[in-house]
Amino acid sequence: MADSPEFTPAKNAATSGEFVRDATYINDRVVKGLEPGSDPVGDKIGEMRWPVEAGRYRLMAARACPWASRTIIVRRLMGLEDAISMGLAGPTHDVNSWTFDLDPDGKDPVTGLERLQTAYFNRIPDYPRGITVPALVDLPTKSVVTNAYQKLNFDLVTEWTDFHRDGAPDLYPEAHRDEIDELDSWIYPTINNGVYRSGFAAEQGAYEKAYDELWESMDRLEERLSTRRYLVGDTITAADIRLFTTLVRFDAVYHGHFKAGRNKITEMPALWGYLRDLFQTPGFGDTCDFPQIKEHYYAVHTDVNPTGVVPKGPNLAGLLTPHHREELGGSPFGDGTAPGPIGIESERVPAGHGAQ
């Protein structure tokens, strides 16, 4: 089954009943120092290097997916819209692929693709793994360059600097990289992936283990964020983006759908203030589409929600209420500036799909 990286059905769990994510990706990189227009360097897919080149690549994403949402946020904060175009798949898909059913005639307007699967097959015929988003596609060949989301985001920050907007933030500052990586070493398995380990567990023991680890880490973050505005340092970093895409989906999806319901984020003062602070920061909340998020989880995950009924709630207007986190010091962009309004109409979240 062609799954997005944010989920795999429970039937793919290990014999212990624990959800196991397939984390094998196409690990090619897009890097500085190569001649624009040149072929990739290297002779093994997954280890090749492609040139940084404006207009050559298209980011294929889906607002429903938290992994793709990270890349959407990074691209916007860095101001790479003119250098890297973006195609958006719809929130649901069949067993074969994400599809571009939001676009006229069901085709991505730049590549003409109906299915993201085609771009994978153009690179690796009969590609055997999940057709995942985000994926960076080479426009001349309409083939996937990479779907390794963490490396892709790192390269957008560190390799595409010639195309960053004025005032772009440093999301992975040298002085804090060890701390960012250390946080990710436990936030990813217990929270980002932990909600899926809870929701897709096939046995009670595996579920309870994932649930307990999730809430141990959430309590740890609640304490950490009670005295600091951001996870690391005094500005937004990659660590905040990685956590945000899980937190913003929590009350609407993970709390009930994934059986993660000890309490809601709205019931945790520090995390709730932190989430509102980020949501109201340009580049974060203005990229969130809640109807798409809910439709994806509740309609696609038939093992978890056999009826396919999508809930109307919860009321998310609280995300727009004052947070007062500025009293803790720091500022979102430090010496940089916020990105301006979203200039590409097709990339704007439709009215009524945010937290209004």
Score class of each variant (00 low, 15 high):
1 M>G: 02
3 D>Q: 12
9 P>C: 00
10 A>H: 07
12 N>D: 10
13 A>H: 08
13 A>C: 09
14 A>Q: 06
14 A>P: 01
18 E>Y: 06
18 E>W: 01
19 F>D: 03
21 R>K: 15
21 R>C: 07
22 D>H: 09
24 T>L: 12
26 I>E: 04
29 R>K: 12
29 R>D: 07
30 V>I: 10
31 V>I: 14
32 K>L: 08
34 L>Y: 14
40 P>Y: 09
41 V>P: 12
50 W>H: 05
50 W>M: 11
52 V>I: 11
53 E>F: 02
54 A>H: 03
59 L>S: 01
59 L>K: 06
65 C>A: 03
67 W>A: 08
69 S>H: 10
74 V>Q: 01
74 V>S: 03
78 M>K: 15
79 G>F: 01
81 E>D: 08
82 D>S: 15
83 A>S: 07
84 I>L: 01
85 S>R: 07
88 L>D: 00
88 L>C: 02
92 T>Q: 06
93 H>C: 01
94 D>L: 01
94 D>R: 04
97 S>V: 02
101 D>N: 15
106 G>R: 14
108 D>A: 04
112 G>F: 01
120 Y>E: 09
122 N>R: 00
128 P>C: 02
129 R>C: 11
129 R>S: 13
134 P>K: 09
136 L>T: 06
137 V>K: 01
139 L>S: 04
140 P>D: 08
143 S>A: 15
149 Y>L: 07
150 Q>D: 05
152 L>N: 06
152 L>M: 14
155 D>L: 06
159 E>C: 05
160 W>S: 12
163 F>H: 11
163 F>M: 05
166 D>F: 05
166 D>E: 15
167 G>P: 13
172 Y>Q: 05
173 P>C: 04
175 A>V: 05
175 A>S: 11
176 H>T: 00
180 I>M: 14
182 E>C: 00
190 T>Q: 15
192 N>Q: 11
198 S>Q: 15
203 E>L: 15
204 Q>L: 12
204 Q>S: 13
210 A>R: 12
210 A>W: 10
211 Y>L: 15
216 E>V: 00
216 E>N: 13
216 E>L: 12
218 M>E: 06
221 L>Q: 10
225 L>K: 14
225 L>R: 11
234 D>Q: 13
235 T>N: 06
237 T>Q: 09
239 A>R: 11
242 R>A: 06
244 F>L: 08
244 F>Q: 12
246 T>S: 14
247 L>Q: 05
249 R>M: 10
254 Y>E: 06
255 H>M: 07
267 E>C: 09
270 A>S: 14
281 T>V: 08
282 P>F: 01
291 P>K: 06
298 Y>C: 09
299 A>W: 04
306 P>T: 05
306 P>L: 09
313 G>W: 09
319 L>K: 11
320 L>I: 04
320 L>D: 03
321 T>S: 14
321 T>I: 00
323 H>S: 12
327 E>G: 08
328 L>G: 03
330 G>M: 10
330 G>Y: 08
339 P>S: 10
340 G>Q: 01
341 P>D: 13
345 E>L: 04
348 R>G: 07
351 A>W: 05
